[in-house]
Design a protein around this nucleic acid. Structure first.
Length: 944
RNA sequence: GGGCGCUUAGCUCAGUUGGGAGAGCAUCGCCCUUACAAGGCGAGGGUCACUGGUUCAAGUCCAGUAGCGCCCACCA
């Protein structure tokens, strides 16, 4: 074995081996255990969030596989409609080509090309991470299975009137020319203005205070071209007389009514609101109540139309509407139109005032363009009937959120669910299985032939398919059953629905989790998963969200392989949307990673993710932690080197033979059981942080720190019997074997590499650690007496080490040890463990002294009532020892005062449970004993 | 406006039913001791954000305050 742990040289070969041997497929035996991967974007690449969640999923998967469950980690990727289309369009743009130039079919062909070309990136990266997903079942949301499921679901929901088509206001992205759902709109505060416009009253009407106009306030002046009413609150005395009268809409010169509606807040602005039903969601509702026409003034790119068009609320065009728009406006971009409107109002003396105003601006999550409420024909899912059982499933505990708190977020959204707009005016995606005849009648079935059959349409009827595609999340919603073969009644469907746990971020609870619950319940009658483990978001070390524009992104692969500074700077600053930030980012990066990033390997990265995975909290990713856990890998590596070098070619008891277990052997077997129990408890509760830390503590501090040291004297001493040596070798090998199996789910590569060499010594001929049984707690292995004895040995060693450390006694120097005031138990332990003590504390001789023996001047320490002494002659500075004792006295004195105070409080003694009081008394007695001994020792020194 | 979360050592974070404040990294001292200097041994370091309450006892429970963050929502 190499002297230092080198992840590069061991990782990839094992992954290839596992994959080739098909170890990732379900065994077909045992209890079903299934995790569905949240399908990453097929053309995407692995970011820290993926790496984190995949580590959690893989750890669970490997753990359950070893537990003997019939384990499936269902994998696959998502076609990610807008995101993917954007990427390909951007590439074409570089060659000066628009998708319209290519036409639909050729463009889609290009996207598939891109998918084939870059679609392997993320799956390759998942392999680097060691993810044991069953690749033979890899799915894609646009493959035949999923497409069939999508069509089937769409048709069934349409036939049940749950999917419908309607002309309504939607969130329109003027950049991509498509509708988007409410969820894809991000509202953020931005600074803007509130413009106050004067609308002249028509037909000589006057306000109560004699003015011939009323003032409306708006944040979006350009929409006034589509105003069809002005609204006031019915209770507003100022405008009561004007309700039913009308104003002359400036510029357009259209007479529009003044209506009364409770929606209007009298306190806000002037109490008069312009109503533009075709360009504002609130106004739409107001307009609908008063049956005021919808006037659309925008084209698809949100520029002003040549002429406005008007509709009623059933979507019917109002043919006799005069849609002329004022000169100079048609064709203007909305923001230019805004400027011109303001200028025109000012020029006409109708601009009353302008006030600063902070408002919520809705932007498309992909385009970052200001989204327009826009009147279009779209497909919707009526969610009410689907939501009810989905809410109940969580209420009744059929689905549990972990941490439980997230169910509140889920309920909050589910109780206020709006119909889901599922059509997108894109080309990349599942084309909607709907056809129209020349009259615009709609027919829905899987394909055109089915349509003709279902609706009895012969060949003479011309049909054309709907041009729109479905929201990406529509197919994602079917993931839990579409990937398992639905609508066929497959064995997988039977076995793995519901899946065991969904591991995902809170950011897609609405987008994805809720919709999977609704759809899976609807179509399989079962919940999609029993638990939802919500992970935190990975942020940078100071809590900032990782983003390209901030320049703080870490690539998990760079943490695995390492990267030099220049490449990192180039990666962070290349191809930026805002190149002006590049310099700052480069500077920051150079400062933070002066030497680039070291190669830490996959196992260290995975272990770090586990260690950071505490609940209900975002994760500030700290590179220091990775380094620490890389060192942990090295620790395990070297422990294995030690074990192998002492056991290979030796008799480790694997073939029988008499074995005698030393105290240390019995102790470590017992400690192992505790480690197993702790680990399993924590994993079951999704506390990967606690599981990893108990593992870390056991391996580093107990197995390496104590046990390996304790094994040395047994192995090297001539006094040890063959049986004892065999017992210790056996323990070294088999406890390590258990450690490797415990650690395997989190650190698959390192453990496999070592296990392969270790297995024969443990009498094991399995071909991979992946399919070994997971260690289970074995009470018969816990020897409490041995544990107590060894804890005593540790105390003695620590006592001596403390003196040595504080007194700066060189590690090379061996020291004599005197023991005083010990009891019979101490004496036994001392005699039985002289070798351990001598080796671990570097003691040259041990001398038992009786109560009345004369003692030399010495530095002392206490183990219970027993004093241990290291004579000072030539070794110890009296003043230093005095200082050490004073420090100790001080600490113990404070503790005594605290305990005595507590026990002298009658309230405590009377009211606290007896056991607690007794415990405190016991502690006080102990502390007092220690104190008096320390004082005695100090007095002795003072007398020198 | 509604909902959720966070504040513990210099940094990143644990702390489960209330009962002696912990880990890793960083720091300081001594050591290249035959598994490991990516290491060993020892040490220092905290008014648990603040205020009040409940309790014999509060990092932990309750109320409030401050700061930070997130989600949802139609005030023009």
């Amino acid at each position: 074995m190499e002297k230092a742990y080198n992840p590069q040289s061991i990782e990839q070969k094992w992954y290839d081996n596992w994959e080739k041997n098909n170890y990732f497929a379900p065994s077909g035996e045992g209890n079903p255990y299934c995790i569905l991967i949240p399908p990453p974007n097929v053309t995407g690449s692995l970011h820290m969030g993926h790496a984190f969640q995949h580590t959690i999923m893989d750890t669970l998967t490997r753990y359950h596989r070893m537990k003997g469950d019939n384990t499936l980690w269902q994998t696959g990727t998502d076609h990610a409609g807008i995101a993917t289309q954007m990427v390909v369009e951007r590439q074409l743009a570089a060659a000066n080509i628009k998708r319209q130039d290519l036409g639909r079919d050729a463009f889609i062909e290009k996207v598939w090309e891109w998918k084939h070309q870059s679609g392997g990136t993320i799956t390759q990266q998942m392999r680097r991470l060691g993810n044991s997903t069953d690749w033979s079942r890899e799915a894609f949301t646009m493959d035949d299975n999923c497409s069939n499921a999508v069509k089937e679901v769409f048709v069934r929901l349409f036939d049940e009137d749950i999917i419908y088509r309607g002309k309504r206001l939607v969130n329109w992205d003027p950049k991509f020319h498509t509708a988007i759902s409410d969820l894809e709109v991000e509202n953020h505060e931005e600074k803007g203005f509130l413009w106050h416009f004067r609308y002249p009253l028509a037909n000589g009407a006057k306000t109560a205070d004699g003015k011939d106009y009323i003032v409306v306030a708006t944040t979006r002046p350009e929409t006034m071209l589509g105003d069809t009413a002005v609204a006031v609150n019915p209770a507003d005395e100022r405008y009561k007389e004007l309700v039913g009268k009308s104003v002359m809409l400036p510029l357009v010169n259209r007479e529009i009514p003044i209506v009364a509606d409770d929606y209007v807040d009298m306190e806000f602005g002037t109490g008069c609101v312009k109503i533009t039903p075709a360009h504002d969601f609130n106004d739409y509702d107001v307009g609908k109540r008063h049956n005021i026409a919808l006037v659309n003034i925008f084209s698809k790119d949100a520029s002003i139309r040549t002429t406005a068009e008007a509709f009623d609320y059933k979507g019917k065009t109002l043919e006799d509407f005069d849609g002329r728009l004022p000169e100079g406006y048609p064709g203007l971009d909305r923001f230019d139109a805004r400027k011109k409107i303001i200028a025109d109002f000012e020029q006409k003396g109708l601009l009353d005032s302008i006030k600063d105003h902070v408002l919520q601006v809705p932007r498309g999550d992909r385009s970052n363009e200001v989204v327009e409420p826009f009147l279009t024909d779209q497909w919707y899912v009526a969610v009410e009937s689907l939501a009810k059982p989905a809410i109940e499933a969580v209420e009744q505990g059929d689905i549990k959120f972990v941490p439980e708190n997230w169910s509140k977020t889920y309920f909050q959204w589910m109780y206020n669910l709006q119909d889901w707009c599922i059509s997108r005016q894109l080309w990349w995606g599942h084309r909607i299985p709907a056809w129209y005849d020349a009259e615009g009648n709609v027919y829905v079935a899987e394909d055109e032939a089915s349509v003709r059959k279902k609706y009895n349409l012969d060949e003479s009827v011309e049909l054309s398919q709907d041009n729109d595609v479905l929201d990406t999340w529509f197919s994602s919603a079917l993931w839990p059953f579409a990937t398992l073969g639905w609508p066929e009644e497959t064995k997988e469907l039977e076995t793995f629905v519901p899946s065991s746990v969904l591991v995902t971020g809170f950011d897609i609870i609405f987008f994805w989790v809720a919709r999977m619950i609704m759809m899976t319940l609807k179509f399989t009658g079962k919940v999609p998963f029993k638990e939802v483990y919500i992970t935190g978001l990975i942020r940078d070390e100071s809590g900032e969200k990782m983003s390209k524009s901030k320049g703080n992104v870490l690539d998990p692969i760079d943490l695995i392989d390492g990267i030099d500074l220049e490449s990192l700077v180039e990666k962070r600053t290349g191809g930026m949307m805002q190149p002006q930030k590049a310099e700052k980012i480069a500077k920051r990066t150079r400062k933070q990673f002066a030497d680039g990033i070291e190669s830490y390997g996959t196992d260290a990265l995975r272990f770090t993710f586990c260690a950071l995975a505490s609940t209900s909290r975002d994760i500030n990713f700290d590179l220091g932690r990775v380094e620490g856990y890389r060192n942990f890998c090295n620790k395990i590596w070297n422990a294995a080197r030690f074990v192998l070098s002492n056991t290979e070619g030796e008799d480790c008891g694997q073939n029988g033979g008499e074995m005698e277990l030393a105290l240390a052997d019995r102790w470590i077997w017992g400690r192992l059981q505790t480690a197993i129990a702790d680990y399993e408890k924590h994993i079951t509760e999704y506390r990967f942080d606690l599981a990893s830390s108990s593992l870390y503590d056991f391996i580093w501090n107990e197995y390496c720190g104590w046990y390996l040291e304790l094994s040395k004297p047994v192995l090297s001493s001539d006094a040890s019997s063959d049986a004892a040596k065999r017992g210790t070798r056996h323990t070294l090998v088999n406890v390590l074997d258990n450690i490797l199996r415990l650690a395997h789910p989190m650190m698959p590569f390192l453990t496999e590499e070592i296990w392969q060499r270790l297995a024969p010594l443990a009498g094991n001929d399995g071909s991979t650690i992946m399919t070994q049984s997971f260690p289970s707690y074995d009470e018969s292995r816990v020897d409490s007496a041995a544990v107590a004895d060894l804890e005593w040995v540790k105390l003695v060693v620590e006592g001596v080490r403390n003196i040595r450390g504080e007194m700066n006694i060189s590690p090379k120097t061996t020291v004599p040890l005197l023991v005083h005031n010990g009891n019979a138990e101490d004496k036994r332990r001392l005699q039985e463990n002289e070798t351990f003590l001598s080796t671990l504390a570097k003691i040259e001789s041990i001398q038992w002294t009786e109560a009345d023996d004369e003692l030399p001047m010495a530095a002392t320490s206490l183990v219970g009532d027993m004093e241990i002494l290291i004579p000072m002659a030539g070794l110890i500075d009296v003043e230093a020892e005095k200082a050490r004792l004073t420090k100790e006295l001080d600490k113990i004195g404070k503790e005594k005062a605290r305990l005595a105070g507590k026990l002298s409080n009658p309230n405590f003694v009377d009211r606290a449970p007896e056991a607690v009081v007794a415990k405190e008394k016991e502690k006080l007695a102990e502390v007092e004993g220690v104190l008096s001994k320390l004082e005695e020792q100090k007095a002795q020194l003072d007398n020198m």
